[in-house]
Nucleic acid binder design. Sequence first.
DNA 1: GTCCCTATACTCGGATAGCAAGTGTCCGAGTATAGGCGG
DNA 2: CCGCCTATACTCGGACACTTGCTATCCGAGTATAGGGAC
Lengths: 162, 162
Amino acid sequence: MRISEGVEWGIHCCTLLAALPPDRTLPSARLAEYHGVPPAYLAKHLQALSRAGLVESVPGPRGGYRLARSAAQITVLDVVEAIEGNEPAFECTEIRQRGPIAQAPECYPRKCGVARTMWAAEAAWQAALRAQTIDDLVAGVIEEAPPAALTAGVEWLRQAAR
Amino acid sequence: MRISEGVEWGIHCCTLLAALPPDRTLPSARLAEYHGVPPAYLAKHLQALSRAGLVESVPGPRGGYRLARSAAQITVLDVVEAIEGNEPAFECTEIRQRGPIAQAPECYPRKCGVARTMWAAEAAWQAALRAQTIDDLVAGVIEEAPPAALTAGVEWLRQAAR
DNA sequence: GTCCCTATACTCGGATAGCAAGTGTCCGAGTATAGGCGG
DNA sequence: CCGCCTATACTCGGACACTTGCTATCCGAGTATAGGGAC
């Protein structure tokens, strides 16, 4: 069980886009440059964020990406599911209904207890991610980031934004 | 993010081994037959459970597997980590320290806020799995399983146990 | 009849192929801009 | 001088290779048993 590297990139990109002035956009190449990651591969993940409706894309020169809604209305879970997909991590194959002692399917009205346990844990995981918004993360960055990085970041963003 | 199929098999195997009379063993091939899964592949996962110290293996004829400790002392998390490994699902690559505005490493005393959020969610997931023991699952099966399957299962186990 | 030895059959354990999904990259479709041209 | 047109350059979006890890399988090392033979 491993979470894709793209999730980390996607969250960081959203936090940076949250710091963008309204009605401005930031191209994919600039986002990659800011984070020091491969531009082509980051573009792939940004497409996923766009498909999920978390960011808007503007084509052409002076185009780029911006958040589709307020940073306070985008949860970390939104980003994770946009990148990783929203299918459950645990898939029950109903092996209790296989093998020599299996009964007819209608004898198993409730879901398998193993699956219920795994899904309950997954729900707890999702709840924790849903409780945290991109806005919360931005606040944390402003709170904790090195002051020099903050000023440099703001200046960098001012020049890179379109 | 996808949980290996072996996790499901491992948990079901532990619940079946919990129903085994004390000091009896069940061979890998019988476990596979009971659950209707490929024997050779299940054997691989049982090795992982053995390495993790959750089950004991007895070699030779009349050999097989049995739980290494009480079913009440084996949590679902134990089984999941035995199969999937105990490394965190989210790995922080510290991309905040990359790119043009990165500062010296000593300027980042705390862990990245993104990583803290992801790890907190993972901790909630683990806590949910740690709260559930194999014994709890067995109780659930006895409670909910079709009566015919229960009696057939006990009889099957009586003949298959060594 | 009893004890010992040997061959057997059955178990686990690790080493070995095959395949799907994540990782990484590229090029084409579309658009706002900038410059040139005509009025 | 002003407006329009065209070529350009830059953006996103989807299609195409490569690598890692999960899926699946097999064979070898080790051991308790069962049978046969010797005493």
